[in-house]
Design a protein around this nucleic acid. Structure first.
Lengths: 342, 342
DNA sequence: ATTTCAATTGACATCGTTTTCAAATATGAT
DNA sequence: ATCATATTTGAAAACGATGTCAATTGAAAT
């Protein structure tokens, strides 16, 4: 037998109830609630007392309507379950805390149609600002949105909107990753790259090329393989590479996820990390300190990025201008890379 | 030099504009927009035409006020960055899709004070329903909330509110995990447990005990060690265990995260998995298929749980009754467990 | 005691919808 | 045709706040 308890009908108390109880007008109640205009001390007390007595809470829906603001910041994210985006979300949460604004997440999955409906949802819900986390919405469209709504783009450059883009120094990070391997004596370094329609991928490719060039090594196309920033794709790419029997002693995966996939194939094939193959990743996802062996990688300041994006969007909403820094990356040396010896 | 483009002032078009343009009253416009009452065909056409021409979108803020609904479902989650909760969130997203409701995430971090302010945020924002993902808010308080707002509790039992709790069969899952190890010939099985104020932990303990009892093995307290469901805590606990030099050949970690931590210590100490020690986890977090070796574990239907929670809350809001199933777990055998041989 | 000016206050319009209620129109039966 | 009954419609009242504007009050200055 199923017993359903009737929902307790909660009688809503309004600003008028408070006004009546405190013997003032609703306007005055509003004034003390919002501290917008000075109110005589005795009346203020009376209002506060009434508020406390009736446990009054202003109706946000009404406030939103009259103020024309939703007090929501739309977050157009790409994956709500990935640890990478998760850390950015945490940063955003933190940055929005106590601001009165709350994040409204919609997800695009790196898939244009989905991203567009997600964006549509945000404008329909009349968010007061938008933080986009990369994605594939065309620059032109992003600029259109930015023209009518405060917007911060995190993790991607949009032409003509550079002041509102928050990005890391991909080239430098990638350059340092490659240099790390080079300094350990590696010469045959595989680059496991992500899809090249992705800005991060092309920048990281540049950093790799720069480091190789400076080491006077020519870039062997056989060493460059394609993934899609996922574990699975990393696994597949390296599997094919191994089947082709090209020699290499180290690998730079453009993100940690692909490094995990790569590491698993190597394990399956009996190749040891780092004794036989050194691996370096990119991102420093939370898992990377706990893989076996712990993964050497380039730290992507995800939390920081979320935090700064949130702070920036708040300023933009206030009509202030923002100056966004180029976030630095950092080489984290753990145990998946080691000096080369034949 | 920083150039700031002035925000384009978007003139809002209201239901009155449409009414005027279509030569009808606002009421009629509302009626065709919501299909609430039949409207003469010619007028309906006129309205639709006007809507299309002016690209009219109803103001949600106004709708919310007059309807007294926020069209938001509050999700009181514990960690916005963990893959475990992430998958639940995905399920919720899916379940809410096209319902007109959107999820509003607030996070509690398994920390009562934070959870309470998160809950406060939700009621302040007047969400139409609440999905709680476990947490430490006392049963009594949960019941209070449930008395005034449709509520689904996922991943935890609340006394007196069982019909609104969505839970997995922890005991069975844990029992099967232990049996799996037993069947492989293991006898000295470490139980790496989570904090026992956590319902899942006590139930999983029960499953372990039941399996051991059925195998006529007495439970050696030395084999039971305490973690807190985190990688780090798993690592620490196993480190201490190894220092104590008690013999064991297999380990059941109450979640995958702790299994990762455990696996790393073993690696550090030169103990091979699965050759020397078999490990089984619980949850089947997305990473588990890609650890080395891939982790044998008990699948926790996270996505499914999120999906069902979302569907259930929608029904509750509609005033319908719900019957929540006990979600099944599933043994996923991968490569971290193997037959015991001295 | 007036007058002037500033500080408080309340009445009321407003935000953009939905929805009730009654009026207007259409339909069908006689 | 006439009447009774359905069906569509529009006017106006919510929804619960904020904020303008004018009125009131009080203090200060003459």
């Amino acid at each position: 037998m199923i017993i359903i308890f009737p929902m307790q009908k909660k009688e809503i108390i309004t600003i008028h109830d408070i006004a009546r109880k405190a013997g003032v007008s609703p306007s005055t109640v509003s004034r003390v609630m919002n501290n917008t205009v000075p109110v005589a001390d005795n009346k203020r007390e009376a209002v506060l007392a009434a508020v406390a007595a009736l446990n009054y809470r202003p109706n946000i829906l009404a406030q939103n309507l009259v103020r024309g603001r939703s007090m929501a910041i739309g977050i157009l994210t790409q994956n709500i379950a990935s640890p990478f985006y998760g850390e950015i979300h945490q940063g955003i949460e933190q940055g929005l805390k106590d601001s009165g604004y709350h994040p409204l997440f919609v997800v695009g999955n790196w898939h244009l149609p989905e991203e567009l409906v997600a964006l549509e949802t945000l404008t329909m819900r009349q968010v007061d600002g938008i933080i986009m986390l990369a994605g594939t919405i065309p620059d032109e469209r992003v600029r259109q949105v930015a023209a009518t709504t405060p917007l911060i783009m995190a993790g991607r450059w949009v032409k003509g909107l550079e002041q509102q883009c928050l990005q890391i120094d991909n080239i430098k990070g990638s350059y340092e990753a490659t240099c790390h391997l080079l300094q350990l004596g590696h010469r045959r370094i595989v680059l496991l790259q992500g899809v090249l329609n992705h800005g991060d991928a092309v920048e990281r490719r540049l950093g790799y090329e720069q480091a190789m060039r400076e080491a006077n090594l020519e870039i062997d196309p056989q060493l460059i393989i394609d993934g899609q920033f996922t574990r699975q794709s990393g696994l597949l790419a390296v599997e094919q590479l191994l089947n082709r029997n090209v020699f290499f002693s180290a690998m730079f995966a453009m993100n940690d996820e692909m490094a995990y996939g790569a590491r698993l194939v190597l394990y399956r094939r009996g190749l040891r990390v780092p004794e036989d193959i050194s691996i370096i990743g990119f991102d420093d996802t939370v898992q990377s300190a706990y893989t076996t062996p712990p993964l050497t990688t380039i730290r992507y300041p995800m939390f920081e990025m979320g935090l700064q994006a949130a702070q920036a969007i708040l300023k933009l909403i206030q009509g202030e201008t923002v100056i966004l820094p180029l976030l630095p990356t950092q080489l984290i040396v753990r145990e998946s890379t080691v000096r080369y010896h034949q």
